[in-house]
């Protein structure tokens, strides 16, 4: 057993112990969201932090997963366990196809194109009223069940969501430490050098784009089945920006950082009830501050800062 595995098990134990420490159902509900947001942030981080490709349209993939699952189960009576993988496959396939032309673009242009893609999806959720219920939303989505165990309480949902989230963390950690993760970081650092070594950078980027869409779609399905109600407002441009903020705050290319960013951004508004609605000011300020003062994110930036401070102290004594 290596250090990474011990770290992961410690993290998992800590998370799964939370329900024993907390009795409040409300906070439990918030933690369910932390789990969903963590999955989404990890999905985006694979693309942004590892492959170095930005997306401002991931809320769209999240929404597409939620709607596909919601429509298949609520309208057509499918079992959620069937709807979820089908939705993920459709979203992944779509992302794979869009990926080829869209990832030809770089930097600012890629940001704009993915943004446009996300908005087109958002408009589609709003306008295909016959399918999605339009702006007033889609209700009556069934909870997920295993046999006679229905995940219909916050506590049960907590365990459901977090088993997915922890599984996803483990898989992405493995991926990041594999030949694929290395190849991604290589493409990020120097695309031409990676190509010269035989890495098909374009295909790799498209694969990761599709993978991160699949992760977003699964998070969307889970969201739909725990909320039992979805509406387009949850899948707009603002949410894409919120995801981006989570990833940047936690740290590009850090899986645990994505958890930290997701947890912070999900919990913060809850603690700042009074400042509700104004959380976008905080997001904006945080995004700017992070890029300016801590571009490596909290997970790496805080230790960097401490080390610097300690050095200064040491310097003074010397």
């Amino acid at each position: 057993m290596n250090r990474d595995m011990i770290k992961f098990l410690g993290f998992a134990a800590l998370i799964l112990a939370v329900p024993f420490a907390l009795s409040g159902g409300y906070l439990m509900n918030v933690l369910v969201f932390v789990g969903i947001h963590t999955m989404l942030a990890i999905g985006l981080n694979l693309l942004l932090g590892y492959a170095g490709q930005i997306s401002l349209g991931h809320a769209g993939f999240f929404g597409l997963g939620a709607y596909l699952s919601g429509i298949l189960t609520a309208t057509y009576g499918w079992n959620p366990w069937l709807a979820m993988p089908l939705a993920a496959a459709v979203v992944g396939g779509l992302a794979f196809l869009i990926g080829f032309p869209i990832l030809k673009l770089k930097g600012h242009y890629l940001a704009m194109a993915t943004l446009g893609m996300g908005i087109i999806m958002y408009i589609t959720f709003n306008e295909t009223i016959g399918l999605t219920g339009g702006p007033s939303g889609l209700s009556g989505i069934p909870n997920i069940a295993i046999g006679s165990l229905t995940f219909d309480s916050d506590k049960k949902n907590f365990y459901l969501i977090w088993s997915f989230t922890l599984g996803m963390i483990l898989l992405t950690l493995n991926l990041a430490n594999s030949r694929i993760g290395r190849a991604l970081r290589a493409v990020h650092d120097s695309e031409v050098a990676a190509q010269v070594l035989g890495i098909n950078a374009r295909l790799l980027k498209v694969q990761i784009f599709a993978l991160s869409a699949v992760i977003s779609s699964i998070a969307g399905s889970l969201y739909a089945h725990t909320m039992t109600f979805i509406s387009p407002a949850s899948f707009g441009f603002n949410f894409s920006v919120e995801l981006l903020t989570m990833v940047v705050i936690g740290g590009l290319g850090s899986i645990y950082g994505s958890f930290l960013g997701a947890a912070l951004l999900t919990l913060l508004p809850e603690f700042l009830r009074a400042a509700q609605d104004y959380d976008i000011i905080i997001y904006g300020a945080m995004l700017m501050m992070m890029v300016m003062f801590m571009p490596r994110g909290l997970v790496r930036g805080v230790p960097d800062l401490l080390r610097k401070l300690l050095k200064k102290r040491g310097g003074k004594h010397a």
Binding site: I54, V241, L244, I282, Y283, G284, M286, M288, V291, M292
Partner: peptide, 29 residues
């Protein structure tokens, strides 16, 4: 926001102008 940026990579610039944009929007609200 733009001039003091130490690492003006495209991604950082995208993020900082998005940050600026939502900050201005939030303050206006």
């Amino acid at each position: 926001a733009i001039r003091p940026l130490r690492q003006p990579t495209p991604i950082n610039l995208v993020i900082i102008t998005i940050g600026g944009s939502i900050l201005i929007r939030g303050l206006s609200m």
